[in-house]
Design a protein around this nucleic acid. Structure first.
Length: 951
RNA sequence: GGGCGGUUAGCUCAGGGGUUAGAGCACUGCGUUGACAUCGCAGGGGUCACUGGUUCAAAUCCAGUAUCGCCCACCA
């Protein structure tokens, strides 16, 4: 017996570890790929590139599972395309993250006892940059851990010179030429803690069980008459400028035109009629607070009512609140309610569910507030963005999000883009102090001081209502308040908007110019990301070659924030879509289906997971059993299974490599044995399936297909059969060429999903068998299915062989035959005799039968028939002469159960085949299939019945 | 208020007009067979939420119901 893999050879193949240890493998290959420059594409004008711009990861500085999920899906797509030979660019980058970024650094400062105001704007921004640079390094390290094959040489940051220029260029063009950016005074969402305006999207609405307060307003000149209004925010009474009723509401006809008097401050306000009022809600009379409610603001516009702002930027009551000046809004609510109750003006209080806006970044209750801000006029931008999707120039995956996108786009509202922060792209607008000085108010120092003298009441309240996920900031309250910018610029002032800071005022030539203190919404720069990262507005080679990009892959949670805006801005700036496909993935939850969060303590840290299970296992777990747009759970079971798969592959490879010793491998050719043709057929079918699934973005299904092929077909059957052939040295052809070929091909199929282990095995194989293999599996060609190798008849043949082996094994277990013992078996094979003979050795070895006799008919088999177990299979019978080991009753029972099943099926098919409509309308191949099945079942039935009769 | 999605094996999920509905985990029995016990072999386990409709054929398509979840919305 020659056992080539028995003794360790010179290269030490037996030193291949018995189980796969990712930590020994992963880091070295990432460095190797980097050193080889594989992540950087070569521009080939002859070929269409594949391009993904990576969504900038979140800013916490930790590797988050969501980030990992994104990176893993994209890496799979990117590696696949690169192996297909497409010039492939995966461009990574990071985002300055606006409020979120500023908050992170502010909290870090708080731990040092500092604040952004104690540092001042300039120093603070230095700290921001310092942190960002550190954070960018962390991101690169994350890519390394995850195996992300992105092109670091093209890494971008939203505040780099290029993307910043893109921001200013876009802003200037939209303002000066397109008139799609304007300054306006509107009701916006104001976060009193962040002290900035927010866009509508940055407000989380939560259902709150609050109270609806019914308050009486006495009528002017008639203190015994009242009009009763209902409100959830009584403190806004102080800013009321009218009471409105529906014009058709008969109850209030006589009041319209009269005046009511506001409690507590005694201001007389008109009672007006307006369509916006729903007579069935509350009392049918609505208090109108134009400066603190969007609907009220509209009513005021229609009715020509004044707006009275009653709060400061920190949501404390201002001088318009009379006696409540200086109190926090919720403190004021409480005190005012006490007053109303004492005055007999509070009619009743009833529980009321309503939705309250919270700041997405700090969960403070947002205050609607009339404010001067910059806006993008979105409707004209939305039109082409809608068309692009309707016309399928952009395809959203999964498809159902198309409707969500279109619905949002069609109802889009203007986008408030100015933020009162320090961190971000400063708005490129300047004001001439000479021309507009009188229109610019810098708040006086006393006001600044006053705002520092504040209590924390409102602040604590905010957190009581807040999401426990958001850690309570340690920034001293007064510091936050002081951060409110103190420049107020009248709408009449004329901004000079330019890409670069102007030297002088174009009107008067004055050189004293004041830049707008606000910065832009971080999503403004994000909206430009696909083109700004490629060099736009410059006409760069990258931009020309790589734009539009191929796929935008990101979570569905930022469809509006980001994807929608990229489509609008991409179309506006470049005239072309930013990407062809949008692939939306879901959220990752823990194994109980709960959202992962620090406060729940159920966060799966990818770094730890990688350490424990390996990157490839994490990648496998995140790619498999999941479909686009659906949330997925990730728990230890899934990770273990993934790790086990890696180990399985490792050991199968170990087996193959171990047998390569001293063997000259030829390319599989000539007439191959049926097992070889079978596994090659399955391989090619798998390849075809995988390719199609990848093209449809069904990564999970593609991976499952590879998994099934490798584990079930290659390991469980082909390798087991190969072992038999290897043992039978000299006889017949060696399975090694096919064994290696299939492994090598499957590795390439799998590589986009599990890059490290596939590279490690590939390199080991390559060391054994250089034969012109590429230096790395990641630049090896992706397998292409050879339709000619798909052989239906050999697959059917193997199906029968497998059925025979399984049935014999099952019979052995049923009859409790010692697993090690060989038993005799006779097969009555009919026409299948030659075919089964060619698999005789396989059946004998895997079913542990000896001797095995294969006959065309039952000749020579009938003698012991009544004492044998007879397995009725498709067209063949397997007779196991167990000699008295048979429990006749049990055997009968088994057969009767089989017979019952066959009869049921036969009845179904017969009635189907009698059905004229079926025969007329069903496709021919379906009818044929049913006929064949009927024949087979009838055949089995009669043979089983015969067998029962014998017993 | 509007919209979307889920409901499939004990659990977690794929699938999706046409064989006997799949996987992983869990479960039962057997197994230290020279790749792998992170394994192998053989099993058990499902009225595909419910009701109706379309169809030759429905787990799959349509409508409705129930239930869970998510998104959007100016419910004072």
């Amino acid at each position: 017996m020659s056992k080539p893999n028995r003794t360790p050879d010179k290269q030490g193949q037996d030193e291949i570890a018995k189980s796969y240890d990712p930590s020994q493998v992963e880091a070295k290959w990432y460095q190797f790929w980097l050193d080889q420059g594989y992540f950087t594409p070569t521009l080939d004008p002859e070929r269409e590139p594949f391009v993904i711009i990576m969504p900038p990861p979140n800013v916490t500085g930790e590797l988050h599972l969501g980030t990992a999920f994104t990176a893993i899906i994209e890496d799979a797509l990117v590696r696949w395309h690169r192996m297909k030979g497409d010039p492939t660019l995966w461009l990574p980058g990071s985002d300055h993250a606006g409020i979120a970024g500023q908050n992170v650094v502010e909290q870090l400062l708080a731990q040092e006892g500092l604040s952004r105001h104690s540092l001042g704007r300039e120093k603070f921004l230095e700290r921001m940059w310092e942190w960002m640079n550190k954070y960018k390094k962390i991101i690169v390290d994350q890519h390394r851990k995850l195996g992300a094959s992105c092109d670091h040489t093209r890494e971008r940051f939203t505040m780099d010179a290029g993307p910043s220029l893109a921001v200013r260029t876009t802003f200037a063009r939209l303002f000066n030429e397109k008139r799609l950016i304007y300054r306006g005074e509107r009701i916006i969402n104001w976060c009193p803690r962040c002290a900035t305006a927010l866009s509508d999207l940055e407000v989380d609405h939560k259902e709150i069980s609050g109270q609806l307060y019914y308050v009486r307003y006495p009528l002017e000149h008639d203190n015994d008459e009242f009009v009763t209004v209902a409100t959830t925010r009584p403190e806004t009474i102080l800013g009321d400028t009218a009471v409105a009723v529906n014009p058709d509401d008969e109850r209030y006809q006589n009041l319209v035109g009269k005046k009511a008097v506001l409690p507590a401050i005694g201001r007389a306000i008109p009672i007006v009629a307006d369509e916006a009022v729903d007579p069935s809600f509350g009392t049918g009379a609505v208090k109108i607070t134009p400066a603190h409610d969007p609907v009220d603001f509209e009513v005021a516009q229609r009715q020509g009512l004044p707006s009275i702002n009653i709060m400061d930027l920190d949501a404390r009551m201002n001088e318009n609140a009379g006696p409540y000046r200086g109190r926090d809004r919720f403190e004021c609510r409480r005190d005012l309610l006490t007053y109303l109750e004492d005055a007999g003006l509070l009619v009743k209080t009833e529980p009321h569910e309503h939705s309250v806006g919270h700041c997405q970044r700090c969960q403070t209750i947002v205050e609607p507030r009339l404010s001067k801000q910059w806006f993008v006029s979105t409707a004209p931008l939305a039109r082409p963005a809608i068309e692009a999707v309707v016309e399928r120039r952009i395809e959203i995956i999964p498809e159902r999000f198309t409707k969500v996108y279109l619905n949002w786009m069609e109802n889009i509202r203007d986008w408030c883009i100015s933020r009162q922060l320090w961190w971000g792209h400063r708005i490129p607008a300047w004001y001439c102090v000479k021309c507009d000085g009188s229109r610019i108010d810098v708040l006086p120092q006393e006001e600044f001081k006053r705002r520092r003298e504040l209590t924390d009441a409102w602040y604590q309240y905010s957190y009581l209502m807040g999401d426990p996920d958001i850690p309570e900031t340690q920034i001293p309250h007064e510091e936050i308040v002081a951060g409110i910018d103190l420049v107020e610029i009248d709408l009449a002032a004329k901004p000079i908007v330019a890409v670069d800071a102007p030297e002088q005022c174009p009107t008067c030539g004055g050189r004293d110019l004041l830049q707008d203190p606000d910065v832009l919404d971080t999503w403004f720069s994000s909206a430009l990301w696909p083109h700004s990262t490629l060099g736009w507005p410059a006409d760069t080679e990258d931009f020309r070659y790589f734009y539009p990009t191929s796929v935008m892959e990101t979570g569905y949670d930022i469809l509006f924030f980001w994807v929608a805006r990229m489509i609008m801005m991409g179309l506006e700036n470049t005239g072309d879509v930013p990407f062809r496909h949008v692939y939306l993935h879901g959220l990752i939850k823990d194994d109980k289906g709960e959202k992962m969060s620090k406060s729940r303590g159920n966060v799966v840290d990818p770094s730890q997971t990688i350490e424990k299970y390996g990157t490839d296992a994490l990648r496998f777990a995140l790619c498999t059993g999941n479909s686009p747009g659906n949330d997925m759970r990730l728990g230890s079971h899934k990770l273990e299974g993934s790790r086990n798969f890696a180990n399985k592959l490792w050991n199968a490879s170990r087996f193959v490599i171990g047998n390569l010793h001293d063997v000259e491998l030829e390319t599989p050719s000539g007439v191959l044995p049926p097992e070889d043709r079978w596994i090659l057929s399955r391989l090619n079918r798998t390849t075809a399936d995988v390719t199609q699934l990848l093209e449809e973005f069904q990564l999970g299904e593609a991976l499952r297909s590879i998994y099934d092929f490798l584990w079930t077909e290659y390991c469980d059957w082909y390798i087991e059969i190969a072992k038999i052939r290897l043992r039978a040295e000299g006889n017949g052809s060696s399975p090694l060429p096919v064994l290696v070929h299939v492994l090598e091909t499957a590795l390439r199929l799998l590589h986009p999903f599990m890059p490290f282990i596939t590279e490690e095995i590939w390199q080991t194989l390559r060391a054994r068998q250089p034969d012109g293999k590429p230096d790395s599996i990641m630049i090896a060609p992706y397998p292409q299915a050879d339709a000619g190798a798909i052989d239906v008849s050999v697959e059917q043949e193997m199906d029968l062989v497998i059925e025979i082996i399984r049935s014999i094994r099952n019979a052995r277990v049923e009859s409790t035959v010692d697993p090690a013992r060989y038993i005799e078996a006779w097969i009555t094979a009919g026409d299948a005799k030659p075919v089964l003979e060619s698999h005789g050795a396989t059946i004998a070895a895997l079913a542990r039968v000896r001797p095995l006799s294969i006959q065309e008919d039952g000749a020579g088999h009938e003698i012991s028939r009544d004492r044998a177990k007879v397995l009725v299979l498709k067209g063949v019978e397997v007779v196991l002469p167990f000699e008295g080991m048979i429990d006749v009753d049990a055997e009968k029972g088994r057969l009767l159960k089989e017979i019952e099943g066959y009869e049921k099926e036969i009845r179904r098919i017969e009635s189907l085949l009698k059905n004229e409509a079926f025969l007329a309308k069903a496709p021919a191949h379906i009818v044929e299939k049913e006929r064949l099945k009927l024949d087979d079942r009838k055949d089995r039935l009669s043979r089983s019945q015969e067998r029962v009769a014998q017993l």
